[in-house]
């Protein structure tokens, strides 16, 4: 009895319908939060006492970096569910995640480099965070490359699921080894992106952006998931019902 919701979740017609209905409920709050966060971050928050207005890049860099990790984790969890319970919809979720995650990892890299430029005096510094983001981008590219290398969809789903799980076990190891590596080779006075303590007027826009980006990811995922589900269920009669004008 308790598992009926799980089985319904696994049913493509149900997912297609629910995702379509749920999407606006994520998209509109995301839009409101992101616009409010932008106004708060660019206009209302005071300049930083050290970095002036340059720190305002945090309002796009931190949410992008957060997305890069959140999406990878979501992808790996979905992949594991798909692999263990042989749930097609979970594989569709994992497939939908990869391009979103890769693009935001790219954004995090570019904004991190742009933030570093005035602070370090160079566009690229082998800073642990930027290095980790770069490796994460390569992990995403590997995942997408493996997925597209198979002709057989089921095989692509399951092989890329194994890779996502191996990757998610490795991400923290890579992250901490990169931090360790960096601490050996650089002077201890490394400029840290971000600050441990922020006044509320700076912090609130950041929180709004973080929540807004998360909801935005949810909305994107639902749209992509609908597309994936439709193209995977090639002959099911429910599509006839769902698409009838």
């Amino acid at each position: 009895m308790a598992w009926t919701w799980f089985h319904r979740l696994a049913s493509p017609p149900h997912i297609y319908r629910v995702a379509g209905r749920l999407m606006p409920w994520l998209a509109w709050p995301a839009a409101v939060l992101i616009v409010a966060g932008l106004i708060g971050g660019l206009v209302l928050a005071p300049p930083d006492y050290q970095q002036g207005d340059g720190y305002r890049i945090i309002y796009v860099h931190a949410p992008s970096a957060w997305m890069s990790l959140l999406v990878y984790t979501t992808m790996a969890v979905a992949a594991a569910i798909g692999l263990i319970w042989r749930m097609k919809v979970a594989h569709a979720v994992a497939a939908s995640c990869a391009p979103i995650g890769a693009s935001f990892t790219f954004a995090a890299l570019v904004t991190g480099s742009l933030w570093g430029a005035p602070m370090w005096g160079t566009y690229w510094q082998w800073d642990p965070r930027l290095t980790s983001e770069l490796i994460l981008l390569l992990l995403y590219l590997g995942y997408m490359g493996l997925r597209s290398a198979f002709d057989d969809l089921q095989r692509a789903d399951r092989a890329s699921a194994v890779l996502a799980i191996v990757g998610v076990v490795n991400v923290p190891i890579i992250h901490y080894s990169v931090i360790w590596w960096n601490s050996l080779h650089q002077a201890p006075s490394v400029m840290r992106l971000g600050k441990p303590t922020m006044p509320p007027s700076m912090l609130f826009p950041l929180l709004m952006m973080l929540v807004g980006f998360t909801l935005f990811f949810g909305a994107l995922l639902l749209v992509r998931l609908r597309g994936e589900v439709l193209s995977r269920e090639r002959t099911a009669s429910w599509i006839r019902e769902a698409l009838r004008p």
Binding site: G142, L163, V166, N170, S177
Partner: peptide, 8 residues
């Protein structure tokens, strides 16, 4: 591309 990032 799959192996080297994991070997870092």
């Amino acid at each position: 591309l799959l192996t080297l990032p994991l070997e870092i």
